[in-house]
Design a protein around this nucleic acid. Sequence first.
DNA 1: TCTATTTTTTCGAGCCTCGAAAAAATACTG
DNA 2: CAGTATTTTTTCGAGGCTCGAAAAAATAGA
Lengths: 415, 415
Amino acid sequence: MSVGIRHDDLRRRNRAMVIAAVRRAGQPSRTEIAATTGLSHSTISAISSDLIGEGILTESKPSEAGSLKRGRPQVGLGLNPEAAAVMTVVLSLNFLSVAVIDYAGQVIAEEQRRLDTLTMPRDALVGECVAIVRRRLEDPDLDVRSVARIALAIQGITDTRARAMLWSPITPHTDIAFADILEGEFGIPATMENDCNMMAIALRWRDPQRYRDDFIAILLSHGIGMGLVLKGELFTGTHSSGGEFGHMIHRPNGALCRCGRRGCVEAYAGNYAIWRNARQMSEDAEPVADVSDADMRALATAARERDGPEREAYRKAGEALGYGLGSLFALIDPAPVAMVGVSAAAFDLIEPALREAIAQTAGGQHSKSISFDTEPNELPLIREGCAMRALTFVDQEIFAPGTQTRSGLGGKNVA
Amino acid sequence: MSVGIRHDDLRRRNRAMVIAAVRRAGQPSRTEIAATTGLSHSTISAISSDLIGEGILTESKPSEAGSLKRGRPQVGLGLNPEAAAVMTVVLSLNFLSVAVIDYAGQVIAEEQRRLDTLTMPRDALVGECVAIVRRRLEDPDLDVRSVARIALAIQGITDTRARAMLWSPITPHTDIAFADILEGEFGIPATMENDCNMMAIALRWRDPQRYRDDFIAILLSHGIGMGLVLKGELFTGTHSSGGEFGHMIHRPNGALCRCGRRGCVEAYAGNYAIWRNARQMSEDAEPVADVSDADMRALATAARERDGPEREAYRKAGEALGYGLGSLFALIDPAPVAMVGVSAAAFDLIEPALREAIAQTAGGQHSKSISFDTEPNELPLIREGCAMRALTFVDQEIFAPGTQTRSGLGGKNVA
DNA sequence: TCTATTTTTTCGAGCCTCGAAAAAATACTG
DNA sequence: CAGTATTTTTTCGAGGCTCGAAAAAATAGA
């Protein structure tokens, strides 16, 4: 069960803490680090001297040009971009994109590719992923010997251990152990992440003020996904990536969902559902495979112009999202929400019904104070999230290694 | 933000770990403790010698009568019952009960009282609680100078910090800071806990095999409550005790709930809802204040005898619970469920519809493998949970004190 | 150039855990 | 019944880590 703290863990954890402080703060001085970590100046001095010696951190002389203060000027510590690199692989509908990122977080190489993910055979899909990674790794223009971690994100359900995709709407194939495949191929540790979880992580790094300990990222796209951070930690299911907000039941025995079941939130709020309602098709109509972003934008425009089936479709979407959030907020208490994806651009059409619905629920007691943010473009968020995920892994497991993660704090999902 | 580990924390945490190991295992030897904690024998020896010296642990000579093994016999370590005592206060509908428990977990005194909680003025309710605690504390037959902690449980919503009751169905009054009141009155640290959370904690201590890291306790009583343990930790909302499973929305705009809203799970599965449906009253009918356990049992008997409105009422309850669990399992993945409370005795009437409903949901994919346990009597569970809650507090915060819980691991809800 | 001020490093003290060896306590063996 | 094997527990020195205080370093103002 829970495990004691050994003496050697101490240094390891405090090293990790110093690295984390630098990654968060950018260019903090040793004094600032001492303040945020609560450790003594001597300890910080010793640890950072080690880290600089190992090439993980660097000193960056002039922290601020206008140094008005009296005494010895602070010298900022920064991450050494050359200490390592990580790679992100984002696999979405008909689209594959990779990036190589240096240790300081800058993108140093990219490649993107269109694929027909819905019809590709299993081997071809895996093969494309392996090939694109290989091309980046073998790029002679780039010194990427030091790629220390690969983070792969996909729409759909992954397992808690971040090894495999269990199910995804972008391909008919299931249970692909991408992480193991890439590790086997390149000998680089890899993880298989859920796209919405990566969005949540990215939001936290982008705007730590707003998205700190408790917040929700909801992907409004062809399907409905969610990434949830509670008490500062990424929330996942116990077996799967979990957080399948889109498949909470909105109306028992209701509209047909892409998952084959009935009445899911997604069956009212996913792009295909909005499309189906806007075209006044039956709720039993088979969900279409994909609706283009352009079509969705046209739908939104029409809904804004006149009161018709399009507007009603968005209203229904808002209602489903509102009741779904209400149920969620009954469990976890309300928190700020970020709406991401194409339909987030139509949030003006969704919001009224959403707020009305949520006000009918226990979780929506203070519905007016629940704030919504919108971000129409999910891909950059997912990429950033993957990058931070991979980088913090390097921070913790490679540059602050130790008594190899015994059971204890191993699987913490610090966002 | 997250704080470094100081050198003095080390001993503190390892002390806490040893105490916890003893509480879990009962009479473990030093060697067993070393094995479960992963610490060295020397460390365990040093720490347990301290703890014995301080009167927290005791050695209990003959661990097993039939010691067949060869070498030096193990000497068991146990909790010293006199090291401290705690008090539990359980406030439920028309009923108030307290118990004094020694450090080893044995009840050493009890008192119970009937009250008319629904109509009592606020001051009287608080006054009764204070008075009953005072009577136990001042009991001359008992040496209870050393009560180190009071845990108070109530049906309803409490705040995350476990200081106050925010709302409860047993009284019209809201926002009563019971924990602060008792602390102020007696100078003993107190907490205000949610009843269902205590049930979950108790289940974990009763049957750690079955209820280990992930499970759900659902109270089927006048209202519907839930206690949830995820990844070994009690799950609570971010502001409130959270986990208001009973107020997830089952049918938008559906049956009238006791909370004044419509379509909550509870509005179909709470005793009043089953009663309302069994009597073929309108779903809009005002929920009755209370249905006696005897009446509920009569209802169940009738439902078992013939196919009529009673049976249909239980079917509807099962359906609501099933869809609710389905939505919950979409978020957290399926886990074992314990059904507690009067209506758990009628689970045979509820289960078929519940399983049918859950099979319609994404979370119920493997619905057959989800196991349900029943326990008709919630009160003993709540009491035990409070006792363990209070005792583990004493273990950690009083007998392993240190750098006073800075932000870091402060609020962990280890069940 | 000297002084005040702030940051960073150095150094010894005090703990803590660990491993190895010793001590303690029992069962087996002839 | 004495001696040996075995297992548990304690003891002891070594090695690490963090801390506080003091020293050193680096700058702005006078």
